[in-house]
Design a protein around this nucleic acid. Structure first.
Length: 271
DNA sequence: CTAGACGCCTGCGGGC
DNA sequence: TGCCCGCAGGCGTCTA
């Protein structure tokens, strides 16, 4: 389900339900995720949620003693539900609150994660090596050009590298490159500064628009209240291979890069 | 250091 | 209707 907009929509959806609420019970129903869910997360029982943050695609539930880190992987969903909602397949874990609601984590493919980080700890180095947030001022004019020097990788692979910039996954990489008029195969180090600055602005624009529309629902993404996101209808290239370009009517082409599908307009996008 | 391949999983849609 | 195959929004790890 998730790229940055979907995770942000999830954060916005769950925050009002759990901020300042006290955890009454933690249930680990199936600990098998990317890493096993650690028993230490039981330590949040009796503690208040102080805040709900996001870094890259990680959701960070802040407690006095540390941070509960949630990652949705490819297929994870988080719902805020009533305490008596029936369990379904792949419901891995619950955070129940004193006010009666439950945060429930479901993940069929188990690429997601639920981890505990004690204060000021980042044991797996998951957060410390990440590039800037794309919607922050750290992702600024000149930044991509600076990072792109001497890089030989295709620009799409470069954009999806978390060390460069976080949160740009396959859908939005395709969309941003289309809108910027840059071929996904373009050699990163050969793109001039002006075009990379334009790409930077477009990435911000595309991600912001997706958040505003509740994210992209392809098949299984839903907001915390179960409603779908509406950005799918705004997609211009992703999932549209073989269909006409919205700008010039040329037939959109599809290739594979790093084992991910790339869709582009051979007329509107250049090296 | 960079770049590329691989693996982890389940579910679903398309083709036969 | 059923089976098989390929593909899916991510990303850590390993090799060269």
């Amino acid at each position: 389900m998730p790229e940055l907009p979907e995770v942000e929509v999830c954060r916005l959806g769950i925050s009002p339900h759990i901020i300042a609420q006290t955890v009454s019970k933690v249930t680990i129903r199936d600990s098998r995720l990317r890493w096993p869910i650690p028993d230490e997360i039981h330590s949040v029982v009796g503690l208040q949620v102080l805040g709900v943050d996001r870094r890259a695609k990680y959701l960070l539930l802040r407690f006095k003693t540390g941070t509960l880190l949630l990652h949705l992987g490819m297929s994870g969903t988080i719902r805020i539900i009533e305490h008596d909602t029936p369990i379904v397949k792949h419901d891995h874990f619950d955070l129940a609150f004193q006010h009666g609601k439950v945060l429930r984590f479901n993940d069929p493919r188990r690429f997601g994660a639920v981890l505990w980080l004690a204060n000021d700890e980042d044991k797996l180095g998951l957060l410390s090596k990440l590039g800037p947030e794309p919607l922050s001022d750290d992702f600024s004019q000149g930044y991509l050009f600076h990072k792109a020097k001497n890089r030989k990788v295709p620009i799409k692979t470069f954009l999806m590298n978390n060390h460069i910039v976080v949160g740009v996954g396959n859908i939005y990489a395709n969309e941003a490159l289309f809108q910027a008029g840059i071929l996904p195969t373009a050699k990163t180090g050969a793109i001039d500064e002006q075009r990379l600055d334009r790409l930077t602005n477009i990435i911000k624009k595309v991600l912001s628009a997706a958040i505003a529309q509740g994210g992209t629902t392809l098949k299984d993404f839903t907001q915390a209240d179960g409603r779908p996101g509406y950005f799918a209808q705004s997609l211009m290239v992703y999932g549209r291979a073989g269909q006409p370009c919205v700008t010039c009517q040329s037939k959109l082409q599809e290739i594979r890069q790093s084992n991910r599908s790339s869709v582009f307009c051979p007329n509107c996008q250049q090296d």
